Amino acid sequence: MSGTWIVVGEQSREWAAVRALLEREADVYAAMDWDEAANSVGMDAGGLVLVASASPDGWLARLRGEPRLAGTPAVVLALRRPRAEDAQRWRDEGASDVLDASLPQSDIVQRLRAAAKRAEEMRQLAYTDPLTGAWNRRYLDEWLSGPRGAAGLKLPLALAMLDLDRFKAINDTYGHDAGDRVLRRLADLFRRHVRRGDRVVRYGGEEFVLLFPQTTATEAQAALRSLAEHAAREEFPGVAQPVTFSAGIAEWRPGQPLRDALRHADQALYRAKDEGRGRVLVGEPEAGEGLRVLLVGADVPLAALAAFGPQPLRTASAAGVAEAAAALAAEPYDLCAVDMDGPEADPFEWIRRLRAAAADRLAKPRLVAVSAKEGAALRYLQLGADEFVRKGDARGE
């Protein structure tokens, strides 16, 4: 029962005992409130949400209102024996199961295990390419934008776009069944020779995307060249010609535009094709690129944003949250720096609205709370800001 995420509504002896059993066979992530859970649970979890509460009504509504958790089972562990009508209401509100904390602990764990298994089966159907067994385009989009994907990484991420060389000739010469066998065998080869935390995605047709967390572009280039050597030695039944691929690589770091990294990898791939195929090239940033920053409120000192790197800043301004939300919905930004000391600033509401305005973007802006107040960092980070900087201080906290 790998990857179980838990929302803790109330502490109890019953809950502590169940958690101790779960930790023997699963990765257990405890959250003290819904906002912490929403920031911890993502599509990459592959588990379930366990709501431990005597009265989970509002929790279920908020969980089901979170688009990223669509399809993720939410199991209620009722800390007090629920009435039949309450249990039915919770199921109607989206609970996949309702457990009574007074049940034998072995029964509780068994039913949680069954719920997690059903969730994994549904997840495989939704996010797996049926031909190759690799992750699909939908998985890529959600992983790149989800909090447990690229948006949550603190270290570099290398992205590689691969395209099989002369794949049309394979289909034309040996038939489409042979072409499908090549794709399946190549995807399996990639999975066998990458690290456990790397991702293999079938982007479409004969194109793949490989994601290398905590990896520089140079390290990814070496890994791709090794994969090319393995492919050259691989036997592809029914295909007499060698199977090669071209690849473009780009490196993304937090604070940089993710869409630019994807574009650089794609441009490097086309360059590899033009230069003779069977090559692995690294994409280079274009001249003049920099961080696109939206400054919200009256006083956001640019010096405070120096902590996000030496690249140039391209700034736009918004007087308040409504104007900022419209700007984020209309154009992509890398950072949204918000003056939290203004008279109209409502930290919780501002952060919520700015998050919602950019919710549909693949590369979401990092939300930076800016304040002169002592001790404000923890508060704003708890409310959902990605970073905090103090006015007059060039360091991010």
Rank of each mutant, 00 (worst) to 15 (best):
148 R>M: 14
393 D>C: 08
326 A>E: 15
238 G>H: 11
313 L>I: 11
57 D>T: 10
342 G>D: 06
82 P>N: 03
159 L>N: 02
97 D>N: 15
383 L>H: 02
58 G>C: 09
118 R>D: 14
104 P>A: 11
305 L>A: 01
198 D>G: 04
54 A>L: 05
120 E>K: 10
170 I>L: 05
66 E>W: 08
76 V>G: 04
124 Q>W: 12
176 H>V: 06
246 S>P: 02
183 L>P: 01
357 A>Y: 12
91 R>L: 11
384 G>Q: 09
116 A>Y: 08
300 V>I: 06
195 R>N: 05
64 R>A: 13
164 L>F: 00
280 V>S: 03
145 S>E: 05
276 G>M: 08
220 A>Y: 02
75 V>D: 04
288 G>N: 07
55 S>T: 15
196 R>M: 13
348 F>V: 15
335 L>H: 04
397 E>D: 08
249 I>S: 03
222 A>N: 13
12 S>R: 00
149 G>C: 05
50 L>G: 02
23 E>S: 07
154 K>C: 12
74 A>V: 15
338 V>K: 12
154 K>T: 11
208 F>K: 01
317 S>G: 09
132 T>Q: 03
251 E>A: 03
91 R>G: 13
337 A>I: 03
123 R>F: 03
284 E>I: 13
15 W>R: 13
59 W>M: 15
341 D>E: 01
256 Q>N: 11
264 H>M: 08
296 V>R: 08
285 P>Y: 02
205 G>D: 10
84 A>P: 05
87 A>I: 09
57 D>C: 12
96 S>Q: 14
51 V>D: 04
264 H>A: 13
139 Y>G: 02
337 A>F: 05
170 I>E: 03
228 A>T: 14
7 V>M: 15
15 W>L: 14
6 I>M: 12
108 I>V: 09
50 L>S: 01
195 R>L: 07
214 Q>S: 11
148 R>Q: 15
215 T>P: 03
8 V>H: 07
385 A>F: 09
228 A>S: 15
8 V>K: 12
28 V>W: 07
67 P>K: 07
48 L>T: 12
347 P>A: 05
97 D>V: 15
336 C>F: 11
59 W>A: 15
